[in-house]
Design a protein around this nucleic acid. Structure first.
Lengths: 187, 187
DNA sequence: CAATAAATATACAAATCTGTATATTTTTAA
DNA sequence: TTAAAAATATACAGATTTGTATATTTATTG
């Protein structure tokens, strides 16, 4: 990928997170990226396209980061679900965390027909599916159910932490997860 | 309150929920409300003021609705925490639910210094405090902890339901809450 | 009816928004 | 060095944004 294109993507990612998507104009993006609108519109057909790519990139980064964490840290299926919350805590409490992108995007584009909203919902679904696969590995019966419950805890904690940095929400989400996982294993 | 002012508030509430706050101009609001900008700016000093009032009104309506539900349905402290999730489900699955206002507002105004963000965070805190008071009534030890955990479930479920109507997230949140409450009562 | 208040119609300022047209400069590659 | 590609500078169109100024019309009240 062209370094200029990558720069635009990274600047847009940052500005969207800190100022909001609708509140960030393309003029601001190119100014911060040190380029011009002509270049931006050469690499992205529209602002909506840029938003969609920012979302996709962000989700992929998150997924890859998680994947790598699991590969280098945890091998036992039973531990994975617990470990996940440690990773999430590390992600959420990192200094430049400013909320989960797809959660915020769906709020800025509430219409379910909107492409940005659709992609956000799809990413949320994918994450839940990933949770379900972990639950399956751990030998859980109602994988879909537990996956949804854990996703509520995680997304809720991300929301809480975005609203107030240092809220410590993930700490409690972790405890709740332990109770729910243990309970699901017993049934 | 002037009926015209009330009309503007109600129209703004609806448009903010369905189209987003930043995507809704005052021109659209007055057009739908059947009035003019002059009137709007007579009752509200600025768009930000209108946003803040919409949030305040919405939160008050939600709180009052909950309060009344508890008064007419539930007297026993031990039952209240469980019942709460029935009420939340009723609220969330009502046909015109379009997400929790303060959650979406904080996403559209990510800056923690922003007045809209501050109010949203305050409302979230108040709701958590209400949960804590219910937990105290029920004889829970770690009231703050359980309140935070339940708030994650509820706000997570609201987020999920806003993202995809009919997701059934509250159903699972309710089950998870039961497990967490039982566990908290045992300790 | 007359005086006061409320609401409207209309127009506009000034800024901002997305997206494009045109021409020039810089970089890359043959 | 020369031709092709990439990036920039600049300007602008057209729409939309919040907020205000001015004048007119409608409602209310004494």
């Amino acid at each position: 990928m062209s370094p200029l294109r990558a720069k635009i993507l990274s600047v847009a990612t940052d500005l969207f997170q800190t100022r909001g998507i609708n509140s960030t104009g393309v003029d601001t993006i190119v100014a911060v990226a040190g380029t011009t609108k002509m270049t931006l519109y050469k690499y992205f057909h529209s602002k909506e396209d840029l938003i969609l790519e920012v979302l996709q990139q962000g989700h992929q980064d998150f997924q890859s980061w998680l994947q790598q964490k699991f590969e280098t840290n945890t091998k036992k299926p039973a531990e994975k679900l617990q470990k996940l919350f440690d990773f999430i805590e590390e992600w959420v409490t990192s200094p430049d965390f400013r909320g989960m992108a797809f959660l915020k995007a769906s709020a800025e584009f509430p219409n379910e027909e909107n492409p940005v909203h659709r992609l956000s919902a799809e990413q949320s679904r994918q994450f839940r599916q990933f949770l379900a696969s972990l639950a399956t590995e751990a030998g859980i019966q109602d994988t879909e159910g537990l996956a949804l419950q854990l996703s509520l805890l995680i997304e809720g904690a991300m929301q809480a932490e975005q609203m107030k940095r240092g809220s410590g929400a993930v700490k409690y989400a972790k405890k709740a997860a332990k109770v729910l996982i243990d309970n699901a294993l017993k049934s």
